[in-house]
Design a protein around this nucleic acid. Structure first.
Lengths: 250, 250
DNA sequence: CTCAGGCCTCACCCAACGTCAGAGTCAACC
DNA sequence: GGTTGACTCTGACGTTGGGTGAGGCCTGAG
C-alpha cells in the first residue's frame, strides 16, 4: 500500500505519516527507490497512535507506551486522565468567566471595559484559596505559596497517582481484613508511605503540617467544589483507619 | 517601575513582558539606556491581557480586541466561549474514553491490548453520527462528509455566532409584536438570512436540504446530547415562527 | 574603581505537523 | 523511447508562547 492510500484509510495526512516515520513511531518499509510501503499490520498500530493522540498524549510518550508492555499503559492512562480533568477544570473556569461577563453586560448595557473588569473579577474569585488559608499561619502560607510555584500538571498527576495507589492498597488491606491491626507491619508500611507523601506537600515544615491537620479536621465545612475534587481519594473508612495508623505509629 | 518589579506585581515573567513588548501588545517606555519602564496604567492593561490569555485567546487577537472598541470584544468573547465549549466536549470525550477503558480492565484483568481496543471502540462510538445519518440519502451523506473536512473550530464559532445573532433578532421581533406577520418585510429579511445560513451547510444541494428537513422534523427523537447542543439556539416559538416565514416566503 | 546583579538583544528550543521547493519516480499514452 | 501528469522523497522554514542561555551594557554600593 502506498502512503496516500494508507493515510486516507486511517484518516490522517501524508505529512503526519512522514512525521511519525521520522520519530520512529511508525516506521515504514521502503521500496528500492525509497517510497514508503505500509501493510495491514501497521494500520492497527496507526489506529492506536491516533487514539492515544486523541487522548492528548504527546507523541514521544505514545511511542514509549506502545513499545513497552501494558502495565505502564494503564498507569499512563490514569495519569493522563488526571491531567485532562485538571485541564477541564481550567476550561470550565474560563467558560464560566465568559458567561458571567456576558450576563453582567446584557441587563445594564454597561460599557465594554466592564466586561473585562468582570472577567478579571471572576477569575480572581475562582483563584481564591482563602477558604483554606484560614487554617494556616502566615508563615505556613508563605511556604506553601513558594512550593506551589513548582507544581506542574504532570507533577500533580504523578503525585495524585501515588495517592490513588496508596489508597487502593489500603482499601485492599481492609477488604482482606476489616479489623486489620493499625500497628501491624503492613499498616505501618502504608503509614510510612502516607507520611512521605504528606511530607511532599508540607516539605517537612511543622507549621504547614499543623495547618494541614486543622484543614483536615474541618472537612465537613469545606466548600462543595473542594469535596468534589477529593472524592476520588479514598472512602471515609480509609481515612479513619489511616488516622489510627498514624496515632499508634509515632 | 523596572521590569522585574512590574512582572512580579502582575504575576508574569520578565520574558513574557519582553514578548508582549515585541508583539506591540504592551509597549514600555524606555530609559535613555534602553531599560523598560512601566507605569501603573500599564498594570491595568497587563491584567486584561492575562485575563484574556486565561480565556485561551491568542495574543494577536488579544491585541486587536484591546485596541478596538468593546463591541467586538463582546463578539470575540462569545466566539471564544463557543470554541472553549467545543474543546470541552472533546476533553470530556477523551476522559470518558479513558474511564471506559479503565472500567473494562479492572473486572476481567484482560490483556493490555484490550485497553487500547476499548479506547478505540469508545472513540469510534463517540464519533458515531449514525443517528443523524439515517435522515440523509447516501449521496447527501457523501457531500456532507466532503464539506465537513473544511470545518475548523473557529469557522464553526463564527457560523454559530451568526445563528445566535439571527435568533436574537427573531426573538426581538417577536417580543415587539408577538403576532408579527411572517410575510412582512422584516420577517422575510430574516428568512433570507436564515436560508443563507442553511445554504452554508447544505451547499445548495437539494438532497442535503431534504435530509436536513427530515432531521429537523424528527427533533423529538434526537438523542439527548444533540438536543443539549442545540439548546442555545432559540426557543421553540422562534422555530415555529421561522417555519411559517419560510412557508409563505417561497 | 570595582564588582555584583539587572537589564538589554539576539538566537536557538519545544510539539505536531502545514506548507512550499526542488528533485526523483511511476505508470500510461503517443 | 519520450513525454506528461500524478506521486513521492527530503529538507527547511513557519506556527504559539514563551524558556533558557550567551554575550555585553548599565547601575548602584562599597
Amino acid at each position: 500500500m502506498n502512503i496516500q492510500e494508507f493515510a486516507t484509510l486511517a484518516g490522517v495526512t501524508v505529512r503526519a505519516l512522514h512525521h511519525y516515520d521520522r520519530l520512529g513511531l511508525l516506521k515504514a518499509r521502503r521500496t528500492p527507490s525509497g517510497y514508503r510501503v505500509y501493510e495491514e499490520r501497521e494500520l492497527e498500530r496507526l489506529e492506536q497512535i491516533v487514539a492515544l493522540k486523541f487522548l492528548g498524549l504527546p507523541l514521544k510518550q505514545i511511542g514509549r507506551l506502545l513499545d513497552r508492555t501494558g502495565f505502564e499503559l494503564a498507569d499512563g492512562l490514569r495519569m493522563q486522565r488526571t491531567v485532562l480533568e485538571q485541564k477541564r477544570r481550567l476550561l470550565d473556569r474560563a467558560i464560566q468567566a465568559i458567561r458571567a461577563a456576558e450576563h453582567s453586560i446584557e441587563p445594564g448595557r454597561r460599557a465594554e471595559s466592564a466586561l473585562l473588569t468582570k472577567i478579571i473579577e471572576v477569575i480572581e474569585m475562582q483563584n481564591d484559596n482563602s477558604w483554606s488559608e484560614k487554617y494556616y499561619s502566615p508563615e505556613a502560607r508563605e511556604k506553601i505559596a513558594a512550593r506551589a510555584k513548582e507544581w506542574t500538571p504532570e507533577l500533580q498527576a504523578e503525585v495524585s497517582k501515588k495517592w490513588m495507589d496508596l489508597f487502593a492498597e489500603v482499601e485492599a488491606l481492609l477488604a482482606e481484613d476489616a479489623a486489620a491491626d493499625p500497628a501491624g507491619e503492613k499498616a505501618q508500611a502504608l503509614g510510612a508511605r502516607w507520611k512521605e507523601l504528606v511530607k511532599g506537600f508540607t516539605g517537612g515544615d511543622a507549621q504547614v503540617g499543623a495547618g494541614l491537620n486543622k484543614l483536615y479536621a474541618d472537612r465537613p465545612n469545606w466548600p462543595a467544589q473542594a469535596k468534589e475534587q477529593m472524592a476520588p481519594f479514598g472512602s471515609p473508612r480509609v481515612w479513619e483507619f489511616m488516622g489510627r495508623v498514624m496515632k499508634c505509629g509515632l
